[in-house]
Design a protein around this nucleic acid. Sequence first.
DNA 1: GGATTTGCCTAAAGCTTTTAGGCAAATGCA
DNA 2: TGCATTTGCCTAAAAGCTTTAGGCAAATCC
Lengths: 189, 189
Amino acid sequence: MVRVGLSAERLTRAGADLADELGFEQVTVSALARHFDVRVASLYSHLKSSGDLRTRIALLALEELADRVSAAVAGRAGKDALTAFANAYRDYALEHPGRWAATLLPLDPETAAASAGVRHAQLTRAVLRGYDLSETDRTHAVRLLGGLFRGYVDLERNGGFGHSAPDSQESWDRSLDALDALLRNWPAS
Amino acid sequence: MVRVGLSAERLTRAGADLADELGFEQVTVSALARHFDVRVASLYSHLKSSGDLRTRIALLALEELADRVSAAVAGRAGKDALTAFANAYRDYALEHPGRWAATLLPLDPETAAASAGVRHAQLTRAVLRGYDLSETDRTHAVRLLGGLFRGYVDLERNGGFGHSAPDSQESWDRSLDALDALLRNWPAS
DNA sequence: GGATTTGCCTAAAGCTTTTAGGCAAATGCA
DNA sequence: TGCATTTGCCTAAAAGCTTTAGGCAAATCC
């Protein structure tokens, strides 16, 4: 009865890796137990439930993503910051499909409020400092950008326009150009 | 042993309703069997698998959504068409959360190619006829719009910015204004 | 009215989740 | 070092979902 040294953190990281390999949907307490060669029930000392596991993975992924984006936008401004943000976001999703899928998990309000999701909003807001927008318009723009990045990457990943011309990369670049132009010429109410 | 009159179509519709009530995640062959007061195994004459059920619901929702959008943009052009499209899309999602979640289900390439997803792209393209874009830029814009609508609505539904000021409706309206402005002044490569 | 098809049934196996209770390893403290 | 406590992983078991196999009765078709 050797102790493997489980902990919520290790399980979460292993779960995230499993998500990247097999898909977030496939991450289950059972699969994780198999991975550690341990009985399923043993994991319940560290995790409240299956949903708890998924939530922890989501929170981890949100932190990682915020860290990446934060590093990417540091020292940049204007369009430079915008594309750095967007590319950090998209690259993370392409490198870590399972973790990224986890970030889409709906969280209950308290959990969401304590998550790195708020950092994401702050980072987006920071990028928009490079553009001349009113406080309210900045909020609108934060939401627009958040929605666009999330939706574009999701569509791209799920084959929405994966293998047709022009290349998805090109549409992404042109969309960022367009977004920059839009933010520089944001229409008045 | 009275026959209830099951069929793939009835099961799919009932499954879609169940999704709207309980969430798409909760739609299971078991739950559906309970709903029809029938043994679980009986459903397997009509459905290949649990995934088959979910896929059918996704296809149904994509059709319904395309029908709505199609009706909304008929006879409109320019910004009028753009907002009609966007609002039809968003309203469907708000009215039918489970069905809408189903539209996000990743489909395998052949299924996707045969789905109403292609109508969505065509409808988006049709809306963009009201703007002066090159063929390639039109494709970029189709992808941008598709991503934005999908992502915005998803963020909105999952509490991303549900209960903070300003109202999500306002951000939506302003985003459509912005989008219209962008499409009228699409930046050159 | 009899043959065939079809629809729902029972049975059963396999997997995931979750709780309860137990024993042994690790840890803490004299 | 030696003992007590805590902690970690275990077995057992119940409950729910998925899926396949085989059967019987209702509907359908001459």
